[in-house]
């Protein structure tokens, strides 16, 4: 039993969970507003899209490296099908298929340059991101566009509603939350119960060993980026339906906070490490910071400062831990035989 507890204590995710709890309690003590159902529902709603994006970031960082293209792939694809929906009246599921196809194509472009030429994934995905940006704003003018009728049902779908009270406004949990839950379940199953999923971690752990063991590394890596494209599109669609409009500008820059979230959750930028729990916890923590600062009386202007500090602290702690474990490892190696 103690081994399991020891292992649990070594996990990053535990500490993030503790921090969340402590923060939540502190905020509630200060304002009395945190544990209200309205706030909790609001928080859950606010993490939906970023959690889906976090999946993209997780898959990329664990196996290969940075992926910063998911918000713009999401934005561009959603924008395109909204426009199509308005002008052509195609049914919703066809539009969704088109969007997924666009996302897949973007993923293929990422995958191609990263796998075939072994270019740095940060730079490739940055390039793809700007290409999507250019298309969304340049070709299509990037003007905000309302949700077309085909998606109205989905856009209005709430699975939970909390009434307005004296202390707080009403809140509702959008149906997209279920989409997120399903996606997480799917990804969980694949990552933990299929060989392809284990390959994601194996490739990130030691690519050479993965090849030798027989994993089709290049194919799997390419597939990861295509999947990221699909996931991004789903995230983008959910976001637009939740907002009941699509404004590409709102997607811009969305990758930063997601990456910060997953790093907080234990994903290592060097690869091979990271969990779904960590993604959710990290996303939730940052959402809390964004959402709850005002509750404690801190002006909303300070939001970015806080996020920046959290990223810096989180990354520093992770870096110091990594350095320390390397030192311990070399001592273990030396002491190993004697």
């Amino acid at each position: 039993m103690s081994k399991k507890i020891k292992r649990l204590l070594g996990k990053n995710e535990l500490y993030v969970a503790i921090i969340i709890l402590v923060l939540a309690i502190t905020i509630h003590m200060q304002s009395g507003l945190f544990f209200l159902p309205n706030n909790l529902v609001d928080l859950l709603r606010s993490i939906i899209v970023n959690s889906i994006y976090a999946l993209c970031a997780l898959l990329a960082f664990v196996s290969t490296g940075a992926d910063v293209s998911f918000p713009m792939i999401a934005g561009m694809s959603t924008y395109i099908i909204f426009k199509l929906g308005e002008t052509t009246g195609l049914p919703a599921f066809v539009l969704v298929l088109i969007a997924l196809a666009i996302g897949a194509v973007c993923g293929c472009i990422n995958g191609f340059f990263i796998v075939k030429f072994r270019f740095n994934s940060l730079i490739v995905t940055l390039s793809t991101s700007t290409i999507c940006y250019g298309i969304a704003f340049g070709a299509l003018k990037g003007v905000r566009i309302d949700v077309p009728a085909q998606f109205a049902d989905f856009a209005n779908w709430n699975i939970l509603k909390v009434a307005k009270t004296e202390k707080a406004l009403g809140a509702s949990l959008h149906g997209a939350f279920l989409v997120m839950v399903i996606l997480y379940l799917l990804v969980y199953l694949v990552l933990n119960h299929t060989m392809v999923g284990r390959a994601v971690y194996a490739i990130g752990g030691d690519e050479v060993s993965a090849r030798r063991a027989g994993f089709k590394v290049d194919q799997i890596r390419f597939g990861i980026f295509v999947v990221n494209g699909l996931l991004a599109v789903i995230g983008g669609l959910c976001y637009a339906c939740m907002c009941k409009n699509c404004s590409p500008m709102e997607y811009y820059g969305g990758e930063m906070i997601v990456i910060a979230a997953i790093v907080l959750g234990g994903v290592r930028l060097t690869g091979g490490h990271g969990s779904l729990t960590g993604c959710i916890l990290g996303t939730f923590l940052l959402a809390m910071v964004q959402n709850s600062l005002t509750m404690v009386g801190i002006s909303v202007y300070y939001q970015n400062v806080f996020i920046g500090i959290i990223i810096i602290l989180g990354a520093s702690v992770a870096a110091i831990q990594a350095t320390r474990s390397m030192k311990i490892k070399s001592v273990v190696d030396k002491e190993g035989g004697e």
């Binding site: 060989m195 284990r198 194996a202 990130g204 060993s209 063991a213 091979g272 490490h273």
Partner: peptide
């Protein structure tokens, strides 16, 4: 090989079994 072809980020169990499963 000299570099042992193990996956440092995976567990002993996985390292032991992975070739067979593959």
């Amino acid at each position: 090989y000299q570099d042992l072809s193990v996956f440092p980020n995976l567990t002993v169990q996985e390292n032991l079994a992975i070739n067979t499963v593959l």
